[in-house]
C-alpha cells in the first residue's frame, strides 16, 4: 500500500511535465498574443517590442520552456501580464482558497444530499418518491449552472432582496448561498442518480437477498450491507465532480461575482496571460491528480477485494 502511494506520487512528475509541455506549446500555437490589441487597446509596436523583451518572449522557445520550468520548480510561477505588478503566486494565494472553499462546500452539499436521496430512491424503486426524485435530478442536471445562478440572483437578489446580487464575503455569509447552491446542484443531481443506480445493483445482489430472506429489516440491510458497496461508483463520480467543482466553477463564479480561480483562469486565457494560465493549470492539475489518488485508495478501503500492491 505504501509502495503504491509512493509510486503514484512519483508518477505525478512525468504527468505534470507532460501537461506543462502541452500547455506551453498549445498556448503559443493559439492565435493572438498577450499584447495584440483587444477591443479597446491598440499597442504601439515599439512598446510591444519592449513588453516582449521585458517578459522574455523574444528568447528562443526552448529557453522560455526551460526558464519557466526552472522558475516553477523553485516555486516562482512568474508575473502576470494582464495585472501589472502582480505575480501568479499572489493571484493563486488570493483566489485559490476561495475556489477551494466554495468547491468543497458545494461538494459537501452535493454528497450530503445526493447520496441519501439516491439511496432513498433506490429503496423505494418505481414508487412516486423514486420518480419524483429522479425527475428533480434530471431538472438539476439539465439546467446549466449559469442559468441557475442568474435565476437565483434575479429572484432572491433583485426581487426578494434576501441576498446581495453579487460579491463575496467569505463562505459563512449570505453572499455564499447562491454560488454554493448553484455549484452544488449539478453534482448533487448526478451523485443522486449514481447512488440510486449503484444501490439498485447492490440490492439485487445475492447476499442482500439472503439477508432479506433472513428477515433483516430493509433499513438495516441498506445501512449494514449495501451502502458500503453501493458507494464505490459514487466515490468515482464524486471524485470526478470534486475536481470539476474546484476547477470548473468559472460560470458560477462569473455570474455571482465570486473572485475564484476558475474565473481568473478563463480571463487569463482570453488575455493570453501565459504565466497565469500555466501556473493555475499546473496547480489544478496537481489537485486533480491528488483527488484521483484518493479516489483510487478509497476503493481499497470500501472494497476489500481490490488490493494495491
Amino acid at each position: 500500500m505504501r509502495g503504491y502511494v509512493l509510486r503514484r506520487l512519483l508518477a505525478l512528475i512525468p504527468t505534470l511535465l507532460l501537461i506543462y509541455t502541452i500547455v506551453f506549446f498549445l498556448m503559443r500555437a493559439t492565435p493572438g498574443g498577450p499584447w495584440d490589441e483587444t477591443g479597446t487597446r491598440p499597442v504601439f509596436p515599439e512598446v510591444k517590442a519592449n513588453l516582449m523583451k521585458k517578459y522574455h518572449l523574444t528568447d528562443p522557445l526552448w529557453k522560455q520552456y526551460v526558464d519557466y520550468l526552472a522558475g516553477a520548480l523553485h516555486g516562482d510561477l512568474g508575473p502576470s501580464y494582464r495585472q501589472r505588478g502582480r505575480t501568479v503566486n499572489e493571484i493563486i494565494a488570493d483566489f485559490f482558497p476561495i475556489s477551494l472553499r466554495l468547491g468543497l462546500a458545494a461538494m459537501a452539499v452535493a454528497i450530503g444530499c445526493g447520496v441519501p436521496l439516491g439511496f432513498l430512491a433506490a429503496v423505494r424503486q418505481d414508487t412516486r418518491v423514486d420518480r419524483g426524485l429522479m425527475f428533480l435530478a434530471v431538472i438539476g442536471i439539465s439546467t446549466p449552472s449559469f442559468v441557475v445562478a442568474t435565476v437565483l440572483i434575479v429572484v432572491f437578489g433583485v426581487y426578494l432582496r434576501w441576498v446581495p446580487t453579487s460579491g463575496w464575503a467569505g463562505l459563512l455569509s449570505r453572499q455564499a448561498l447562491i454560488p454554493v447552491f448553484a455549484l452544488a446542484l449539478w453534482p448533487l443531481a448526478a451523485v443522486a442518480r449514481y447512488a440510486r443506480s449503484s444501490m439498485l445493483d447492490v440490492i439485487r445482489a445475492d447476499y442482500v437477498r439472503t439477508a432479506k430472506a433472513k428477515g433483516l429489516r430493509e433499513l438495516a440491510i441498506v445501512v449494514r450491507h449495501a451502502a458500503k458497496n453501493a458507494l464505490i461508483p459514487v466515490v468515482t463520480i464524486a471524485g470526478v465532480y470534486l475536481a470539476f467543482v474546484v476547477t470548473g466553477s468559472f460560470y458560477v463564479e462569473s455570474v455571482t461575482g465570486v473572485p475564484g480561480l476558475g474565473r481568473y483562469l478563463v480571463l487569463s486565457i482570453s488575455a493570453r496571460d501565459y504565466p497565469v494560465i500555466m501556473g493555475t493549470t499546473l496547480l489544478l492539475a496537481i489537485i486533480v491528480m491528488v483527488v484521483n489518488l484518493i479516489v483510487d485508495l478509497s476503493y481499497a478501503l470500501l472494497d476489500p477485494r481490490i488490493r494495491y500492491e
Binding site: G157, V158, P164, E253, S254, P259
Partner: peptide, 21 residues
C-alpha cells in the same frame, strides 16, 4: 467600488443597482 467580473459586468452592475445596492 464593488468589483464584478469583466464578462458579466453589465448584468452585475445593473442588478446591483436595481436591488438598491
Amino acid at each position: 467600488f464593488r468589483i464584478a467580473p469583466a464578462g458579466e459586468l453589465c448584468g452585475a452592475d445593473f442588478r446591483a443597482y436595481e436591488a438598491n445596492e
